[in-house]
Structure formats: structure tokens, C-alpha cells
């Protein structure tokens, strides 16, 4: 196998080379090569079981690949643990809410900010005395319109707000690259716009890759679309190219068998 050239340091925020993963005989990622330019708004689409979440798990270090490499801003991060990748600026959200149910939104985001500022190990001063950390946390919540409900325990928050809290927790790590796994999953269609508007309002230099099933949302927010089928990249291109691709249509209508 030829070794592909590592990605250019300045232009490519996140890249994978030959990324592969199999569970037993089931290949869930096959030789995946992705280049996310700095500031990209990429969508990752594909039918159920295509390996979209697996790919995010591989990129964030929650799964170890069988082969291949992952580069963050040109640095090989393949062997780093999940928290080291987060500290280097690679954050994610979860398709199924993975929140701190018993903490309120303010506490949860304050914790995430405290971790990033490396003060979460300090036990001799009250949380209340770390005012910069608290203000930063509150600012993130306010930007996602969670300011009003920040004292509510997470498990008591309405579902749509919990989805926004997912994003708030990821933003608290000050990511350079943010991977969103169906950020509006389970949110009623009329409210999913709110989640994506929150996403779209994020800083321009933040590199985004999101998984989404709703094609209206994908075409509205993505600048580039990657289609994943059976653990491999089926095709990629601009929204217009993907919309015009007959192969993609077939995949989604299930006319073609992929094994």
C-alpha cells in the first residue's frame, strides 16, 4: 500500500489517511481519506449503518482504528487518547444525549471550561471564586440561548435545550474542529432549524463536520457533502453535485445492494 502524503499544515484542519476499522469480519470503516479545510462546513451523510458515527468515534479516539492515520492541523494524533485530542482542539457532540444529568447547565459548562483551563483539579477554592471561568461558561450558554435555563438541572431541561447543551459542552473546550453527530436528532423538524442556526452562528474559523439525515438541512448548511456507504466513501462533492448524482439517489432509495 502506498503511503499518501500527509496533509498540508495550514490549510487542512483535520485529515484521515487509510482509516480502517473492522468488528470481526464486519468492516465498518474502509480506507477512509478525508480532508477538512480550515473553516469547512462539511456534511457527512449516508444510510443507516454506513459507519458515520463510527468514523467520528475513530477520529475522536473513542475507537482505535485497525489501520490508518488521523491528522489534526498536520500533526499525527492517531495514538492520542480522547482527552488529549480534545485538549488539542478536536471536539464532538453525541447523537444520543451524553450529558451530566444531575448537574445544571451552568455547572456542566463551567466544568468543561474549567477542564480546558486546567483548573478542574483545584480543590482549595470554591467554584464561585473562579469568575472568569464562570463568565466564559455563561457566555457560551447565552450564545446558544440557554442563558435563561442555565440553573435548571439537565435532566429537567426540554429535549431541544439538551441538544443545545450538547453543543455548548463541546464549545467550552474551544475546539478548532467540531464534529457534530446529528445535532438535531430527535428534535421536531420545526425546532431543528434553531439548533442548526446555533451551529451556523459559530465562528467562521471553526471547522465543522456534521452528520445529518434531513437533506433540506444538509443542503442549507453544508458547503461540501461526503457520502458514506458500507464504511467507505461513496462519493463527495458540492451540494449541487451530490443532488445531481444518480448514484446517491439510488443509495438512499435502496435500489442498490452494498455489502
Amino acid at each position: 500500500m502506498s503511503t499518501p502524503a500527509p496533509p498540508a499544515k495550514d490549510a487542512v484542519a483535520l485529515a484521515t489517511r487509510g482509516l480502517s476499522k473492522a468488528f470481526g469480519s464486519l468492516a465498518v470503516a474502509r480506507d477512509i481519506e478525508i480532508n477538512l479545510p480550515v473553516g469547512a462546513r462539511y456534511a457527512l451523510i449516508g444510510p443507516n449503518g454506513a459507519g458515520k458515527t463510527t468514523l467520528i468515534n475513530l477520529m475522536t479516539g473513542m475507537l482505535a482504528p485497525n489501520a490508518g492515520q488521523i491528522f489534526l492541523a498536520g500533526d499525527d494524533i492517531t495514538t492520542l487518547g480522547p482527552q488529549e485530542r480534545v485538549r488539542r482542539g478536536l471536539a464532538r457532540t453525541f447523537q444520543i444525549n451524553t450529558l451530566f444529568a444531575g448537574l445544571n447547565a451552568l455547572e456542566a459548562v463551567t466544568l468543561a471550561v474549567a477542564e480546558r483551563r486546567r483548573i478542574a483539579g483545584k480543590f482549595w477554592r470554591g467554584v464561585g471564586s473562579h469568575s472568569e471561568t464562570i463568565e466564559e461558561a455563561y457566555e457560551i450558554l447565552r450564545r446558544l440561548r440557554l442563558g435563561d435555563s442555565c440553573y435548571q438541572t439537565t435532566r429537567e431541561l426540554p429535549y431541544g435545550r439538551q441538544r443545545l447543551l450538547e453543543i455548548a459542552l463541546a464549545l467550552a473546550t474551544k475546539p478548532k474542529v467540531l464534529l457534530l453527530d446529528e445535532p438535531a436528532a430527535g428534535v421536531p423538524q420545526e425546532e431543528s432549524g434553531e439548533v442548526f442556526e446555533a451551529v451556523a452562528s459559530l465562528a467562521d474559523d471553526l471547522t465543522l463536520l456534521f452528520i445529518e439525515h434531513d437533506m433540506h438541512v444538509v443542503f442549507r448548511f453544508a458547503s461540501h457533502i461526503i457520502v458514506l456507504v458500507g464504511g467507505a466513501i461513496f462519493t463527495e462533492g458540492s451540494p449541487a453535485e451530490i443532488a445531481a448524482d444518480p448514484g446517491v439517489r439510488e443509495v438512499y432509495l435502496g435500489k442498490r445492494k452494498h455489502g
Partner: peptide, 28 residues
Amino acid sequence: RRLINSPFGLALRGIRENWVRMPAIGAD
């Protein structure tokens, strides 16, 4: 009491509430 009300106390509660999320916010 001080420890529990500190950022470290918050981190311990974070571990209790969601072990999986902790690495995803960069926590060791």
C-alpha cells in the same frame, strides 16, 4: 466542604454523572 464546592468537586460529580462524557470535554 471546600473540596466539594471547588472545581475539583464539580469534576468528581461530572465523573459520577457521566463517565463517557468526561474525556469528550478534555477531562482526565
